[in-house]
Design a protein around this nucleic acid. Sequence first.
RNA 1: GGCCCAUUAGUGGAACUGGUUAACACGUCUCCCUCUCAAGGAGAAGAAUAGGAGUUCGAGCCUCCUAUGGGUCACCA
Length: 554
Amino acid sequence: MTTKDLADLIFPHVTMTVDDLEKRYPKRDLPIGAEVTRFAPSPTGFLHTGSLFTSLVAYKVAKQSNGVFYTRLEDTDTKREVEGSGKELLDQLAVFNIVPDEGYYGDSQKGNYGPYIQSERADIYRVVIKDLLIKGKAYPCFCTKEDLDALRTTQEKNHVTPGYYRQYAKCRLLTLEEQIAKIKAGVPYVIRFRSEGYHERKIEVNDLVRGKLFLSENDQDIVIYKSDGLPTYHFAHLVDDHFMHTTIVSRGEEWLSSLPIHLELFSTMNWQAPKYAHLPVIMKLDNGNKRKLSKRKDNEAAIAYFLKEGYPQEAILEYLYTIANSNYEEWHSENPNLSFDDFSFTFSKMSQDGALFDLAKLENISKELLARYSKEKLYDETLKYAQIYDKHLEEVLLKDPTFFKEIINIEREKENPRKDYIKFSEILPKNLFFYKEEYEEMFKKGLPFNSNFDKKIIYDILNEFMNNLNFDEVDEQTWFACLKSLANKHHFAENNKTFKANKDIYIGHVGDVAEMVRIALTTSKQSPNLYYVLKVLGKNEVIRRITKALEVLK
RNA sequence: GGCCCAUUAGUGGAACUGGUUAACACGUCUCCCUCUCAAGGAGAAGAAUAGGAGUUCGAGCCUCCUAUGGGUCACCA
């Protein structure tokens, strides 16, 4: 009996060899320095903020080195798989312009190193497992869940490191004859890797983010082939990243502790391991405690949440860049006209500690960004948002694009533009009063005129204002001068200072007068610059609204 | 619990291979400007770099201990 007999018994139909696979997946023809990176999600749900972060980094690294960024679907956990989530993941990535050069696209695959869906790669994994079996580096394990639980319990009781390794690895000790007999008898089994490592021994590893690290060798005989015929993550990582020729594996830091497993796997196969970058996990403050962004508890964990809220995708990416590289913000303020595509990312400038998700920062970035959009761009982007998330908004936008653009263009497209909006969803609510029907609704709720002033005075001022409308003919300065003289005529000071100095002469100041007009036109005490509000509304509408207000004041 | 990683103001974080008053940005507060708001301008507060010890002429940076936080110990990824 030889290991070959065992291997043939387990995989009678596998005739291909590792060498055949090497030929099928030859080295990539890429310039020196080009990195091959990947994003390899599991189809278990929505796109997590942390996953977007990881994939952004992988994408960026590949792009800036003229390399290849590809995607791979890690669907070996059939139990946790969520129908359709693979496609959703890729679609959301595409929203951020993170589009793979090859790999899994959600509903199709493209590239010479496929298949890019792990469940379709079962025969590839089997070739490598058979090879390990023949080399005696893997063996079948017949332990049941109960056996393993019992093992763990005694290990815990005896205070030894729990796990399946060395003398605790019962099935590792089985003879070939015993293994073959059990398999022939139909006893269910998995295949384990035969580790040669010692936990007491340290290995030096290099992580792109963390630098030199000393980790214990792996000594666990980990499962590489599950009873359902699919590999575990560790093994799939070995095979896929080898044959797809990944040069940098960037993944969440939760993988750091299994790095020794991966390294042992690579060295057993005599394959060159990729470079690794273990990225910090994005955290959140919860009752004073830092913790990982949780899919269940935190809205911010799902990138879809931000999209739905109306944060522009650019802002989200930019925010992620600020936590990815500490020098990003500085670079950005020095190069205000460049986009983050021009930024060069470096692993060494990445923080090693999990950043807290900082909503205020995101809001600030978003606000700055939206303020710099031209009216055309803001309209287009808002429309895109509305088409997916807000039908009512969409109607409003499509019904009168010009009007909407006029509204949002108030004090935009200049050196210091207004910064009113942090997300698309805020635009309409902040400008409702411009729309006739909405104005009517708001009007019904009453006009909040300052009760310190006599209704009669307000009436007279508004009336006179309405009868002398000139905003169409004059510039802002002149118009405002007229408002001042109107104020003055009614014993309101021309500015706050003179009012404060002469409270006995004046009943108020021009600001109070402006407020009257503002309330009549917008039903609110706050609005953008009045002059422009008048312009956007137009003479007829202004007259109509003031007339309505006058009715109330009678 | 074992092992691994981390720890600089509320947040993100800078500080070259140890070298004087610990950047900057967001946030907070104050004042100015302004017809309100959003901005803009000026300024302020806020950290003896988790605590302790050691090495050194000198430590945020090196070493050790402690504390705290995070990760990981599956036929999940």
